[in-house]
Amino acid sequence: MNNQLLKKTGAVLLALALWQAVSMIVGMEMLLASPLKVLERLSTIWREKDFLSTVLFSMGRIFGGFLLAFLAGIGLALPAGRFRTVEILLWPYVVTIKSVPIASFIILCLIWFSYTQMTVFIAFLIAFPVIYSNVLHGLQSMDPQMLEMARLYKVRGIRKLFYIQLPGVMPFLTSACSVAIGMAWKAGVAAEVIGVINGSIGQKLYDAKIYFQNADLLSWTLIIILLSVTGEKLFVRLLRHLYRKAVSR
């Protein structure tokens, strides 16, 4: 184990000890469950009959929204990077999505959509500007010398995209995906809580709040973190793998 990892493990253990101490001082599990209590709840929660369906319900919708944002973000950033007019035409929408509070969108969604579609839409809305802005920034910071080379050798269209633009955009795209997946989970679950969507992780959090089940609340929070981080790592790894495979042909 290297020194850095050792220090980080120490910091986590210290944080857990602090949590345990505060929980003991508070002395009420319904206000702040102890780490041990949460661990105990985690060991049983996954055995409940609706656990898998709940996780799949939320994960499918949140990841679905993210994937739509991924495709739309790239699909719109490409023409926006090429044509300034497209960038300007899209600008008001992107700025609006970025600046309107997510709670306002959730309320609007409750009016416009069915409850089950709402998570997808909210995850999309939160992830789209991140993907779009990063890909656009990547395209706009392309090496001008490489673009000049492409122009001279008449490298155009899909070949220009694949050989010249994609390598420049990849670092921006992967970091955007890392951020966007985490944000999609946060906003998606918030939408589920506000909409009290049946069969979702958000509903479990809502129930935990109603029945003062603090251990349930913290257990589901840890599950969300785990799903978010794992999903992010897997997606970014898959993206890098596909890119490497494509360029090594």
């Binding site: 010398q145 490489m146 080379m149 050798y153 490298v155 360029v247 042909r249």
Partner: peptide, 22 residues
Amino acid sequence: SFVFQEDRLCEAFTAVSNVRLV
């Protein structure tokens, strides 16, 4: 055809891919 002062190659790709590009 132009050999620039800088190499201006697609760094992530193989030499064969760089040549076949043009």
